[in-house]
Design a protein around this nucleic acid. Sequence first.
RNA 1: AGGCCCGUAGCUCAGUUGGUUAGAGCGCUACCUUGACACGGUAGAGGUCUGGGGUUCGAGUCCCCACGGGCCUACCA
Length: 681
Amino acid sequence: MGRKSFSWWPRRGRKRCWHLVGKKALLPLMNREIPIIADAMVDREFGTGAVKITPAHDPNDFEVGRRHKLPEIDVMTDDGKMGAPAGAYAGMDRFEARKKIVEDLKALGLLEKITEHTNAVGLCERSKTIVEPRASTQWFCKMKPLAEPAIAAVERGEIQIVPDNRREEYFNWMRNIRDWTLSRQLWWGHRIPAWYCKENKHVTVAREKPAKCATCGSVNLEQDPDVLDTWFSSGLWPFSTLGWPEETADFKKYYPTSLLITGYDILFFWVARMIMMGIHFTGKVPFRAVYLHSLVRTGSGEKMSKSKGTGLDPVALNQQYGTDAMRFCLASMAAPGTDIVLSEDKLASARNFANKIWNAARFLFLNLDKFEEGGAKLEELAAPEVRAKAPYAYQGSVPLVDQWLYSRLASTIELVNDALTNYRFHEAAQGVYQFFWGDFCDWYIEWVKPDLQSADREQATIVWKNLFAAFDDALRLLHPFMPFLTEELWHQLPQRSGGKSIALDTFPTARKAWAQEKIVGAVDIFTQIQGVITALRNIRAEMRLDAKKKVPAQFWSTAEFIRNRVHIESDAITRLAVLSELKVSPAALGQVGGSVRSTAQFDVRIAYSDTVDATAEKVRLKKEIEGLEKAIASKERQLGDETFRSRAPEKIIKGLEATLAGQRIELQKLKDRLAQLEKGS
RNA sequence: AGGCCCGUAGCUCAGUUGGUUAGAGCGCUACCUUGACACGGUAGAGGUCUGGGGUUCGAGUCCCCACGGGCCUACCA
């Protein structure tokens, strides 16, 4: 279809055609002689293995043309018609010309056959019209000298790229960098500062419009109509915004900045260019770290795009679910290196979390009002200096539930801080979620509920102080993810004078004193007690007991300290497991009636034999026995392997042994229970 | 075609240097309109981590291959 010039490459018919290279062919219709050449660009497996070369209308052909010094003939005009070099076709519309050429070739008997071929045609993103490749004069920026120091800066770690795997992409792109076309045929942007004299086409480049041509002195000058690529100007952003090229105070203070946050799809467009420009113009990298965040996709996984109209409307979604929910949702899904598929389900889940926090706070303040009727003041319970001394002790010791809560809080604070410094925002968000909902609401508030209005004013006061101190920390932890909700609730607590916003308060940092409680073992004991309550509830559910039906239960553990602790906490356990009484047995539980749950550490029983479904119970037991036996067998195999014992770290071996011991006890208990059930039926 | 990434519960995804019975949210099942919350509570079910080799005492995790999917860049006579 190429109607002008040039050449071929007969490689496939190496034997058949090689002799033709260097000779000339006559281009039909144009009657122009064109050379036959050989070039490795050609795919000899495709079609005839020979192809015409049109350097002015194809990027590959352009390269070939340069290699073989072929003339570049542009056969089109700016308005998409055929130009003078198109000979007889000049003035025709390009589509018309193509049809006419086929007809003419046919008429001359030169057309052998027509085959279908799918070709990638460039389309204008907005107008959808076909973009015709045409050779033209453009300004290019030589990139190698700019890229090299920019590669080195990242290699040396002067700039950290997060997530790590994007470093490779950066290197790959930078090492294979091509010269950068700066000319854009748009009607907005920075005009290219080049002037041409009309007489001799000399080029004069200057900051201000020159008075005359630098070469021939002509005053008849015309500025290049093209503008600079927007990314060229954008690349200057880190320092031009700070007053550069002046050595302003801002520039000195804030350049380089610490962190750039942007989408990973813009790493090459913008980030790489800022780095290159920054190093070139200022001698310094523009920032110390680049966090490349995920792209938000629609529920069906499409990239959101304004021009494609595939975006979700954040304003509409914010109105529906709340901006806090949106923010939390995005953060909780921002695992580095993956995209975020945003769906309404997930937003709803985040909204539910916000709702949960709001209701928990409502509960606290409603109860506080009642408590204040007895003379207490919020300032005495939750002023900053009061909160700072938490956790408070009651009758000489910090209540177990508070030891546990503050230890959990300390771990959460550590986790969140750690996650944030490492750009692992999803872990931070999920950590707060787990603490606030799973620990604070589900366990802590439920646990201390009756104590909030305790007749023992001293006890109630302690409870309130501990509660508010933890609540305040939790709010501040949550604040980066749910700014509005936490701000609102924070203002309901008494703040230090001048406490204008939670955003100006300090972010919680690790409290070693709280984490210490874990070492003492309080957390482990509390976890055991949670296990006791869950086991009892599980039995209730299996028995299909009415939720309000209070039933008697028995408890036994070979460990005396657990028995003692369960005894001390029996009020709470009784309430949370809906029992009529909890009896700590003086000896192992006998095999009589009811339903039992066991762990390696303890056994609980609800004595309600008439409602026990023995068949279902046996199925459950067998399943658990099977799973345990498998786990035990694999551990025994591993621990029996001398190579393993000699090479695995001590910690792993010890842990395995401990777990194995527990599992053996558990298995024995399950087996006994099963045997007893089978004997009974 | 080249480069990068992904494949884990029904769905969407976590899983930091290989190490003790692989987690979450949603959905699902059963029970509960219990005085903060049904946008809720309690208890559950559900995965031979795409497949095949390899390294290792030990692999969801490291290496190779295959299959499937995505993105970026380039593009075919």
